[in-house]
């Protein structure tokens, strides 16, 4: 079925577009041109095996382009600018705390009908002992604890959120094989040290908890606005990264605005109490 469909060059062309989408933006058109030319020469019978071979070697091709592109290599420059790397750090770093906060705080608050539990005074409404932190298999607990802690990071303010965003974002960019690996690793380590230092200061009382109080979520809102600005202004972003930044940034800014309303404050106090 697929084989017969690939006899249509239009479908083969669409398949090359899908494959090319996985390559760095600056290299896509060139590689798509090569695949299209080869498929045209091969003819309908061999197209499927050609595309499967291209799919199998796609990760290697992507790695080669990212590793070797740039000045003096002969390949088009696909390395990211500083602004592009910064925008991606913000995207990957902010994604965890924002998603975790939405899932662990307002979604649980309304889905588990916490206001009725509080009003009734009989049922348990402690966020640490409600589903999914209770009533789920023990082996899933690391997932829920990680989400719970990431949700806390979103409300703890600049001393926690900023190092968290920089550390997790830099590690994510590093894992994706981007440029400036040494610098990114150094930044991630520095941020990790700053995060551990902030946690240690809070646990020993050296850092007053007020610093990480209800207003801490404003930091998330500010970083959200920066993310939206990056989505609009930074040039070397893929469509996916740009959309992600806009969505995560809007959600983060929305969180800060919503928690300033009476309804939002009630939810936030429930979570932080």
């Amino acid at each position: 079925m697929v084989r017969s469909r690939l006899r249509s060059s239009r479908l083969a062309t669409a398949a090359t577009a899908v494959l090319a989408a996985a390559l760095p933006a600056g290299f896509r058109d060139r590689q798509r041109g090569e695949w299209t030319s080869d498929l045209d020469e091969l003819g309908p019978g061999a197209r499927l095996s050609y595309l499967l071979g291209a799919l199998r070697t796609l990760p290697g091709l992507r790695r080669s382009v990212l590793r070797h592109s740039g000045a003096g290599s002969g390949l088009p420059a696909v390395r990211l600018t500083g602004a592009g790397i910064g925008a991606r750090i913000l995207l990957y770093g902010l994604l965890g705390p924002v998603l975790s906060w939405i899932l662990m705080v307002p979604v649980r608050y309304y889905a588990l009908d916490v206001p009725s539990r509080i009003a009734g005074g009989t049922a348990d409404y402690d966020p640490k002992s409600l589903w999914p932190l209770a009533g789920t298999p023990g082996w899933t607990m690391p997932i829920w604890v990680a989400l719970y802690l990431a949700a806390w990071v979103a409300v703890l303010g600049v001393l926690f959120l900023l190092p968290w965003v920089v550390m997790t974002g830099s590690l994510s960019v590093l894992r994706r094989g981007r440029a400036r690996r040494g610098l990114l690793a150094a930044v991630a380590v520095t941020a990790a040290v700053a995060l551990v230092g902030a946690m240690w200061s809070l646990s020993t009382g050296a850092l007053p908890f007020d610093l990480a109080g209800v207003n801490g979520i404003r930091t998330t809102g500010v970083l959200g606005l920066v993310a939206v600005l990056c989505a609009v202004r930074v040039r070397d972003l893929t469509r996916r990264a740009r959309t992600g930044l806009a969505v995560v940034g809007t959600a983060a800014a929305g969180m800060a605005v919503w928690t300033a309303t009476p309804a939002g404050q009630a939810v936030l106090w429930w979570f932080m109490d």
Partner: peptide
């Protein structure tokens, strides 16, 4: 080589100059 699998090699060679 299987057609469609040569490009990572060519890109690596071109990248190396």
């Amino acid at each position: 080589l299987e057609p469609g699998t040569i490009y990572p090699i060519l890109v690596a060679f071109e990248g190396a100059g």
